[in-house]
């Protein structure tokens, strides 16, 4: 057995143990902390699966942003003092049986791959050069399956509107409740002054490099969102009121440009969401750059939650 496989087995064992503990530990707080650790371990697993793009996304969104959201929710719900009602033993037994069945079924499928494993990797690599992109994953996201990516941006916008819709009527158009928890703390302010310049450069770099190496709009956007949230939490800047025109404009700029270029493809190339020959790369980079901004704003606002106080004029 090679060192790599020993490492893999240890990693899987750790992931499973931490994963199970997020379900089994008694307090919600501990579960959330476990989950953040779990997200990090999972991104290592993605590196081991040679999917660095996914690893970055998992670390940034799956672990980081989701962890942040959950942590905020735990801090507010004070659910530690809630004496948990557990479901009855028979239900747990039945659920355990059902889950074991599902796991067994999936394990059988995993252990019996088809005789000839189908793959689209050669087709992707064959068709990638005209787009000028070097990163095949970016190629799939923005060229071959661009429709999915476009729709997914709309999904994020809808989720944000869904979150906003949970505001009380009087607070509509106001500011999210995030800075309520901001206690100006000298070390935090120090960090919020020092880190964002570095983070912004890094976020833009992530987006830029996504065309040829792992990275891209989502990973870059997440970093930018994190920087913005840091500044807000440290009390250096207020969260914007959700009725601001610039905020709404930034939110839709990315999807709008994507859609516009897609529609232009109808005229200048031969189909919707096709890119005219020779212009593919600059167009995709433009879309990615705008999307990075839109995603950063959307993610930050999703994390900031629904508006809680009416806008002060």
């Amino acid at each position: 057995m090679s060192i790599a496989s020993v490492f893999d087995i240890a990693l899987v064992a750790l992931i499973l143990a931490i994963g199970a503990s997020t379900i089994l530990v008694r307090t919600a707080f501990a579960a959330v902390v476990m989950f953040a650790v779990y997200g990090l371990l999972l991104s290592i697993a993605w590196v081991r699966l040679h999917a660095v793009d996914v690893a970055l996304t998992e670390a940034a969104i799956g672990g980081g942003m989701t962890g942040l959201l959950l942590l905020g929710a735990v801090a507010r719900s004070r659910s530690d003092d809630v004496d948990r009602v557990r479901v009855g033993y028979p239900v747990r037994l039945a659920a355990g049986g059902l889950c074991a069945l599902v796991v067994a079924g999936l394990a059988i499928v995993v252990l019996h791959p088809p005789a000839a494993v189908p793959t689209l990797a050669p087709v992707v690599m064959e068709n990638l050069p005209p787009s000028g992109l070097g990163n095949p994953v970016a190629g799939v996201l923005f060229v071959f399956r661009a429709l999915d990516t476009l729709l997914e941006k709309v999904v994020v916008l809808l989720a944000l509107l869904g979150v906003w819709s949970l505001a009380p009527d009087r607070a509509w158009g106001g500011t999210p409740g995030l800075q309520v928890y901001a206690k100006p703390d000298p070390p935090l302010i120090f960090l919020a002054q020092l880190l964002p310049p570095v983070g912004i450069v890094f976020g833009i770099y992530m987006c830029w490099v996504g065309a040829k190496d792992p990275g891209g709009a989502f990973q870059g956007g997440t970093v930018l969102a994190a920087m913005w949230l840091l500044v807000i939490v440290a009390g250096l800047q207020k969260a914007p009121a959700i009725s601001r025109l610039w905020l709404r404009g930034l939110l839709i700029a990315g999807p709008m440009l994507f859609l516009a270029i897609g529609l232009a493809g109808w005229v200048f190339a031969d189909a919707f969401l096709a890119y005219p020959e020779g212009y593919a790369k600059p167009l995709i980079v433009a879309v990615e750059a705008t999307l990075t901004l839109s995603i950063a704003v959307a993610l930050a606002m999703l994390a900031a939650g629904p508006p809680e106080r009416a806008q002060q004029q």
Partner: peptide
């Protein structure tokens, strides 16, 4: 792609445009 296939794109794009515009126009 068949003739008139472009109509299918229209059926999907119209509501998406509506969502985006509503966001920014208020």
């Amino acid at each position: 792609t068949t003739a008139d296939g472009a109509l299918l794109v229209l059926a999907i794009v119209l509501p998406v445009v509506g969502i985006l515009l509503s966001f920014v126009l208020g």
